[in-house]
Amino acid sequence: MKILIVEDEAPLRASLLEYLRHDGYVCETAENYQQAHEKIKLYQYDCVLIDLTLPDGSGLDLVRTLKQENSVAGVVIISARGSLDDKVEGLELGADDYLQKPFHLAELNARLRSVLRRRQFQGQRHLAFRDLTVFPDQALVLVKDQPVTLTRKEYDLLLFLLANPNRLLTKESIAEHLWGDAADAADSFDFIYTHLKNLRKKLQELGADNYIRTMYGLGYKLETE
């Protein structure tokens, strides 16, 4: 998987690079419009992360260029401008997703995976993790080939964990991923625990034990072993 990161802020670019490389992606970076433009003209990427406000141009023009070239690359826009117009315009131009800064790296990773999954050709459209197999198209989850019935939230939670294996998922990022703004209605993050406990129990019943580890008050982690 080859990914181009277009971001002018060096520290953020470094964080994105490190996070995505850790996940096994082949990453390249561009720090301005000119560099990015050259790279998308020269090379093929599976996905391009584009910051909208670049010092020498607009990220929206990069999206336009990609679409004109009939590029197969997925496009995820990351922008600090909370303007609704930008979001609408970006998505209308053909971007696959739009993420507003600041974002959780885990959230970006989950969105990226979902974009890549949607862009991949027919074939093995499933996720495998230890004894777990998930067919996202049918929302089907198998543990050791046995189907598990999960609620909507439990399923979303599992997918979020699967997108970020062996990484700490903070309660804040889980709450935002699963509930968005509605999470403001809660006075604590206890509600996440309820859903996680049920998910754990359902997996455990079919023999997938100790998959999700609690990280001392910070969040949860999907253990690779």
């Binding site: 802020e9 520290p11 964080s15 401008r81 600041p102 974002f103 790296l105």
Partner: peptide, 24 residues
Amino acid sequence: TENAAHETQTPLAIMQAKLEQLLQ
């Protein structure tokens, strides 16, 4: 307003990403 949002949210995005990485 848009620039102010941009100029504030960018350092916040850096802070959040770095702290998230620290936690990892």
